[in-house]
Design a protein around this nucleic acid. Structure first.
Lengths: 230, 230
DNA sequence: CGCGGCTTTGATGTTCATCAAGTAAAGTGG
DNA sequence: CCACTTTACTTGATGAACATCAAAGCCGCG
């Protein structure tokens, strides 16, 4: 049983470019401080304010990273894909998580204890450089997305998010939305009603086909135009 | 002359918590790869797309970090204050700057060659950890600001930005705006006209006093209320 | 001195949020 | 498994917030 975890974890660790350049002992060390857990769709992984004790890797599934502001509506910061380090942004600047994480699909997460990561960081500067790259890229992506979206109109935003699901996440023209209409609204800053309205509009215009959560993209080039100029 | 630079730089380097824990030799080494330059108000420090060769510290002055999208209006990502590392977010994830930087006031910037920073990073893991903290905090701030602003109305946004200038940047109730009305619009995502309209409204309501670029805050508590609920 | 950019105000129009109301789907407890 | 409740989805009508357009005064600069 234990060896299963370690072997699985080891292959996971090896597969990430983040850990290239670590010595055999260093990898062994990290593996000893690594655990894992699976989450059902809808489960909370951790909450804003929880103490940070691990670096978490999403191995399988899909997560949403979000902020819940007091009584106001929530906001989704980003969607994490397999091989993403979730919550990485706050790990080195805070003791508590700044965002909450929930599973959008059944997911598997590997945890490496933060103390162990720090230990390696102190010994292996190249690992720090890789981690710096990883964090910078994550931040860049979030910031660019946020600013890109903010200057699009609602049609452009829906086109953007359909593009993201189709090209980045599922890499297919037909896919099941892992989120509700409401969550799409929280992701791109518009109301649920308008998300639905634009979906319907796109359907009427023959741009997409909708069957509940299932979306099929029919006119990709028009969608791209809408994303660009919307 | 050279010693001037080194001494000045050294005091700068020492003063930053980022470099705590570096050995005497390491500091000496970094100082040898450090240079500096002053910029006049309005000057470009570097442009989106320029090769990244330095880590840049703002020692004195004020900078704007912005994106210029083809023909569309520009967007200001953030304003850098003294002791900020500018462009840090892109340093470890890209070879080119992702944003442009311009001086809003006469400014003084210290440059440490990136190769030298990498050299220290490889040798001193604790330095990497500090740098990770720094980058995380910078990203956190930008992301939080962006999301905070996005759910405020125009009055709340102006209240927010006045608060930022008064409390974070100048730490005074009266200050000279270092930016045009247009730039304020680019910073908080609204049109120049509406920036002006809200300014005038705040003036009429006795919340602020305006003399050209000079702003004096008269009713701080009302401004806070507007920021919170706007 | 005149030109271009910045500032200001007003009038107009569009976009989007809100409100309302109804249908469908998905949990929940007996 | 079925009635019941809740949550998600959908459409339409209305209004508020904000962008856009227009016009004029102001300021700095070559």
């Amino acid at each position: 049983m234990v060896t299963d975890v370690l072997e699985s974890c080891r292959s996971c660790v090896y597969s990430s470019e983040l850990f290239e350049g670590l010595s055999e002992e260093e990898l062994e060390f990290l593996v000893n401080y690594t655990s894992y857990r699976s989450f059902r769709k809808g489960e909370i992984v951790f909450l804003q304010g929880d103490e940070i004790r691990y670096i978490s890797f999403l191995k399988k599934g899909l997560l949403k990273v979000f902020k819940q502001d007091h009584e106001s509506r929530g906001q989704i910061i980003s969607i994490a894909k397999p091989n993403d380090c979730v919550g990485l942004l706050s790990v080195f600047s805070n003791h508590q998580h700044q965002y909450s994480i929930a599973a959008l699909e059944d997911s598997l997460i590997y945890y490496i204890e933060l103390t162990a990561v720090h230990h390696i960081l102190r010994k292996n500067g190249n690992f720090g450089i890789r981690l710096l790259g990883r964090i910078s890229r994550a931040a860049d992506t979030i910031i660019n997305n946020a600013f890109d979206i903010s200057r699009k109109n609602i049609r452009g935003r829906i086109a953007f998010i359909l593009h993201e699901f189709s090209e980045d996440i599922y890499k297919k023209d037909e896919f099941d939305l892992p989120v509700s209409r409401k969550e799409i609204g929280e992701l791109i800053g518009m109301t649920t009603e308008n998300v639905i309205r634009v979906f319907s509009e796109f359907r009427r215009d023959g741009i997409i086909e909708i069957k509940g959560k299932t979306i099929r993209i029919l006119n990709k080039s028009l969608l791209q135009t809408l994303e660009k100029f919307g």
